[in-house]
């Protein structure tokens, strides 16, 4: 029998991380840059690695991790892909490879300098089962800041998702709004992945949003359903793992993947087997 009092922060942490990742995913998948989660995770890891080399340890590593993640998000947000003649995903690939290289360089330097990289590695993989109320409070704070930003800038973000070029041409300060979103996204992801791990975050960003897109019409509905699916993946995955004594992270990832498969099947059935991607001529 599950000890609900003991596991309550873990369940709350899984649900909050899932819900906030679902909200982020709506915009990140909507902008066709789902790779952002992995990129930011590696940037945070690089920050933490060099923080570790500078003598920081434990929760103090969060600060350099945040600096790495937010710095990378700012570069991505303020870069003008059209001026650089680069696609967003090309910029993302560059940032990902550069931050991954820095992270592994730093991990190698830990060995050369005879320092332990245990705390740093824990950041990459996360440890949801060790989540405590203090961690939940941090994740909730980041999630609320993200929710407040999305509420204030929802219509601008929606216009940017449709077309950043058109948003700018119609007088929306798209670069500033998008950079602000990416900074908050990076902060939220960094706070989340010290608990759930960089790899699980990726699936919690992509799968709930993609599942919500299959079942909904309208950006606001997709946002709500994606947050709900994210929370259900985090909480449901943990409960399934606890009941079956399987690894928690893997089950959460598989739960979110299962939701996407199920949603796609339901959407396909409700459309009578038509592909949702086709443009129908009338």
């Amino acid at each position: 029998m599950l000890d609900l009092v003991f596991w309550a922060p873990v369940m709350a942490g899984g649900a909050v991380a899932g819900a906030s990742s679902g909200v982020l995913g709506t915009f990140i998948v909507g902008m066709r840059i789902p790779f952002l989660g992995v990129c930011v995770a590696h940037a945070a890891l690089a920050g933490a690695v060099f923080g570790g080399l500078a003598g920081l340890e434990g929760s103090a590593l969060l600060l350099p991790a945040l600096i790495g993640a937010v710095g990378t998000a700012l570069v991505l947000g303020l870069a003008d892909p059209r001026r650089a003649r680069l696609d967003d995903n090309t910029v993302l690939s560059f940032l990902f490879s550069a931050t991954m290289g820095l992270a592994f360089l730093g991990i190698g330097l830990h060995g050369v300098l005879g320092k332990s990289d245990h705390d740093v590695r824990a950041l990459l993989w996360g440890s949801l089962t060790f989540c405590r109320w203090r961690d939940v409070a941090g994740m909730l704070g980041a999630a609320l800041a993200l929710a407040a930003y999305v509420r204030v800038c929802f219509k601008e973000l929606q216009a940017i998702l449709f077309s950043r070029e058109l948003a700018e041409a119609s007088g929306i300060r798209a670069r500033a709004v998008w950079a602000g979103f990416l900074v908050l996204a990076a902060a939220t992801l960094t706070v989340n992945f010290q608990t759930v791990g960089g790899l699980m975050i990726y699936s919690l960003i992509s799968n709930p949003a993609a599942a919500a897109f299959q079942l909904t019409r309208g950006c606001a509905r997709a946002l709500g359903v994606s947050a709900l699916f994210g929370a259900a993946s985090g909480l449901g995955g943990f409960l399934i793992a606890a009941a079956t004594d399987l690894p928690c992270g893997a089950v959460i990832v598989l739960t979110s993947s299962g939701l996407l498969v199920l949603s796609t099947a339901v959407a396909r059935r409700s459309r009578g087997g038509d592909s949702p991607t086709c443009n129908r001529s009338r």
Partner: peptide, 21 residues
């Protein structure tokens, strides 16, 4: 036209974007 996106934006939402700025 904007590139195809999975985001399920409705026609009304797209037209309402004209009011955003």
């Amino acid at each position: 036209l904007p590139p195809r996106s999975e985001l399920p934006l409705t026609v009304r939402e797209v037209v309402t974007m004209g009011r955003t700025a």
